[in-house]
Amino acid sequence: MALPLPPGLTPPEIAFLCEMELVTVIPRQRLEGLDLLGGRTPPLHPPQRANLPLWLALLLKRQRRANILPPPWLSPPALAAILELESTAHAAAPPRLPLAPPGILPISPPFLPSSTADAPRDALPYHWLELGEILLEAASDDFEDPDAVRRLMRDLREVRMANMRKGVEVFDAQGGLSMTGFGGMEVAEGRAFIGGVIDGLRKIGAARERSGDGDQDDQDNGFPSTADDYDDEMDM
């Protein structure tokens, strides 16, 4: 109990990580490329679009030197289509994420251009919730219809969280829950609860293993011999 924070990342930390995402800006002023730790940013020439990290784009936006172009999936029709898919899909079906282009190794979201103007419009990237909230807050005048986007984002979040909670009832035999397709903020929100459920089930199941012969129990118990390794992690 040394750390007052629960395990995992807090929402502000996730939002900070999200600022690494590339977004497309339309500059209003010229700016030469900047040599940053993450590499050289593209030079900005006013009518041409350029991809910048979100934090730099926000900075330029606040100084009125650039406009941010919202990613395609953050438009009302695209969000409405995804919402439709989420609410009709089977509870266990994971929401879709854009795949890495074929041929290269799957790379993690900050380096995947999943939020630029040419991102796919029919899937949500890992940082969709954070990016959407940040853009709506800092650059709502760059949206065509910010209120509709805001409303759809809220609906989508509700539906996806409800789907995640439904997953608890159908825990599979491995005692795990597939979190494929859930965004960073959603994982953070579900972490304490899902971890708590698994831990509780593990305690109930552990009584059986200790009480008697464990050989035939492993199958229907749902908690194979890895339960002890898991225990060590959870106690930390």
Binding site: P6, A188, E189, F193, G195, G196
Partner: peptide, 15 residues
């Protein structure tokens, strides 16, 4: 469990 679920939802709302 209730407290954990409630607190994490609350921290996202606060953010």
């Amino acid at each position: 469990l209730f407290r954990a679920a409630h607190d994490s939802a609350k921290s996202v709302r606060a953010w």
